[in-house]
Simulated assay, not measured.
Amino acid sequence: MKKRVVIFGDSNTWGYDAVTGGRFNEEIRWPMVAAKILGNEYRILEEGLCGRTTCLEDPFNEGLSGLTYILPCLQTHSPLDMLVVMLGTNDCKQRFSLTAANIALGMRRLVKKAMEAEVWRDNPNILVIAPGPILKECELSEVGKNMGVCSDKSYEIAKEYELIAKELGVGFFDSSKCVEMNDIDFMHLTADSHIALAKEVSVIIKNTLENKELKA
């Protein structure tokens, strides 16, 4: 059986294109580009949803809490070899009134639930990705009417996620090292950033699962 990897995220995993207001095609979306890079030995399972949070119920839109969906999602795709999670951007919305440390606690709850799920082919392999920060210009853009004051805390998420990842013994990657936000809404990845992120994450997936096989 192919190595099965779920990539779980929000609109920047779903592939929102700020230029068209639609969705990037499979040649651009980073989970699908990663699938192409990794090749036929891997089955990449794309689970992105616009507006998704780590664990928060949105008062205006139902079904966006990652915590309530993660278990059936993983069960649907089991048996699994790895889970990649990139969430936190929507947790920055002003209406949730969270700090970056609060957002990291939401990620901690999500990861712990995934670790304890009976969906793993062997032991859990989880990679937490800190999303690229929301640029300050977002707050003055059209989408800023929904996001509110959100930028400053987004720059603090990576260091908080890294602490949580170390505590739980899971992988961590700071996507700000390779991605840029577009100059329209200032919170969604550019097409080039999707490609760059795919290259980085595919290496981590491959190294994680192949090193696991060598140790077996």
Rank of each mutant, 00 (worst) to 15 (best):
V6C: 08
F8P: 08
F8W: 06
G9C: 09
T13C: 13
W14I: 02
W14M: 02
Y16I: 02
D17G: 10
G21T: 01
G21P: 03
G21F: 04
I28M: 07
V33M: 07
A34F: 03
K36P: 04
K36S: 10
G39W: 00
I44G: 00
L45P: 06
E47D: 08
G48M: 04
G51P: 11
C55S: 10
E57Q: 09
D58T: 13
I70A: 05
L80H: 01
D81A: 04
L87P: 00
K93V: 11
K93R: 12
I103A: 07
A104Y: 03
M107T: 12
R108D: 14
R108H: 15
R109E: 15
V111R: 03
K112T: 13
K112F: 01
K112E: 15
K113T: 15
A114N: 12
M115C: 08
E116M: 13
E118M: 03
E118G: 01
V119D: 06
W120F: 07
W120C: 02
W120A: 04
D122F: 15
N123M: 12
P124T: 02
P124D: 12
L127E: 11
L127W: 11
A130E: 00
G132M: 01
P133R: 05
I134P: 05
K136S: 10
E139D: 08
V143N: 02
N146V: 14
M147N: 12
C150H: 04
S154W: 10
Y155I: 01
Y155Q: 03
A158Y: 06
K159N: 03
E162N: 12
A165E: 06
S175K: 11
V179R: 01
M181K: 08
N182G: 08
D183M: 05
F186E: 02
M187L: 14
M187P: 03
L189Y: 15
D192I: 00
S193Q: 10
T208K: 09
E210F: 04
